[in-house]
Design a protein around this nucleic acid. Structure first.
Lengths: 245, 245
DNA sequence: TTTACTTATTTCCATGATGGATATATGTCA
DNA sequence: TGACATATATCCATCATGGAAATAAGTAAA
């Protein structure tokens, strides 16, 4: 290769094939809170490697697509969902994490209200919504349960899921991501349930109410929930970050 | 390609060259606090593209090296440093972020006490330690200054640096990363200076002292600083996370 | 040796956030 | 109409924090 005198000439001469390169994938941790427990959407692999086992929905990143765009495409194509809150999580790059070849995976997590998963589960029978149980030990080990028991995850996806849960727990009480797990209108009770499910603790009700209200994130709608056989709670809406705007 | 009946056969048949793949790089944000201001180590590019401009030290990830190992290797080879606190930051994957080809960059940040940079700066004249000034507007824009004025960064490295500063600011008061920016023994004043430099605010001294002391992170040494022309402060040592152990 | 000086360290108090018990309000349903 | 169950409000003790002020402990000059 010659040494070109200027940058344009250099680029024209540049050979991108000079070195072997790893594949880059995006894996999605699609999370929600279902029946008082965190849950993640998993897919059953149809092909080798690890055919039949459960994994996070994912796919490779083509040459002409931004990482974030790839995440959204996989959300739509593989999980039949859209409009989720999406955030890049961590990049996993151990040499042997995939038996086929070197694959570096950029993990994203995506948060959705529980009811939004119904369509996805119907559209694709290879998907399941797995409950994430806290390990009996206080430690950070996770167990995913499907319809019939404990679900082991293929590749290093259990670790990815664990990192996602840790991130979620870390962010929930200083950011407003909890609202991404709730429908547009919700009661304070529902908001508290989400916090309790993610953190794995039970919270004091008046204190929680106070805290949320004077964060300025809640917009009262004046409406009340229906269908309860007792005093219905007021419905609130998420008022997006009044501080930042 | 045939459809193999078992996983071993499938892997034997698998062609990793079937699709074009991006290059993967690791870029390092090497940070410290120097003279009361955050600073980052920058390198002057010797080659195209952007020859002569300033960038974060970085390099490509070969096929047989874990991401974390690549970060440590670059720390050692490109920055002539070792033993830094290293943490993965974020992965940047816009299609056109590098004019040569598609490069996905996994950014790490690394924290070091200010005095550790001296050897690196001597060993490699293409390195400089740039001061990071807060933008006059309250916003999160950053300016890097070198010996002779404002240093613009090539590629998307200004954005990477900005993400690193944001992460550092976000973590400094609930984690113990501040200690990675200090020598083994330090005064409470020095610890507070680090916090103030990162956060860009001045803190209340007695409150800061109390907070740090009952976090349990500080181990008194009984020794005192020397060379001050007034009452010398006690030297403390970092006692690594008493909670986690 | 003593005193001025400067910063470290401690003490003290006011304030605001939080945990938690308790009281009150307001729906549904028998 | 009243029992019931939960929402919502009130109240108080406790703890973390900001900040002023007092005290301690070195150095250096008188």
């Amino acid at each position: 290769m010659t040494m070109p005198g200027n940058e344009a000439a250099f680029l024209a001469d540049y050979d991108p094939q000079a070195y072997d390169r790893p594949s880059v994938a995006v894996d999605l941790v699609l999370m929600s809170v279902v029946d008082g427990a965190p849950a993640a959407l998993l897919a059953q692999r149809a092909e080798h490697p690890h055919a039949g086992q459960w994994v996070l929905p994912g796919g490779f990143v083509p040459m002409n697509e931004d990482l974030d765009a790839a995440a959204r495409r996989i959300l739509s194509d593989k999980a039949h969902l859209d409009g989720a809150y999406i955030e890049q999580l961590y990049t996993f790059g151990a040499v042997d994490r995939d038996p086929r070849m070197r694959v570096i995976s950029v993990a994203y997590f995506a948060l959705l209200p529980a009811d939004r998963f119904a369509a996805a589960l119907e559209a694709d029978p290879a998907l399941t919504l797995a409950r994430i149980a806290f390990a009996p030990s206080g430690e950070d080990r996770l167990q995913a349960r499907g319809r019939q028991g404990v679900l082991p995850l293929a590749f290093d996806h259990a670790e990815i899921l664990s990192v996602a849960m840790t991130r979620l727990r870390g962010k929930i009480d200083y950011s407003d991501i909890a609202f991404a797990l709730l429908p547009e209108r919700f009661t304070l009770r529902a908001l508290q349930d989400v916090h309790e499910a993610i953190l794995g603790v039970s919270l004091n009700k008046p204190a929680f109410r106070r805290r949320m209200l004077d964060r300025g994130w809640l917009q009262p709608t004046g409406e009340r929930e229906t269908g309860a056989s007792f005093r219905p709670a007021e419905l609130f809406r998420h008022r997006p970050s009044p501080v930042t705007s």
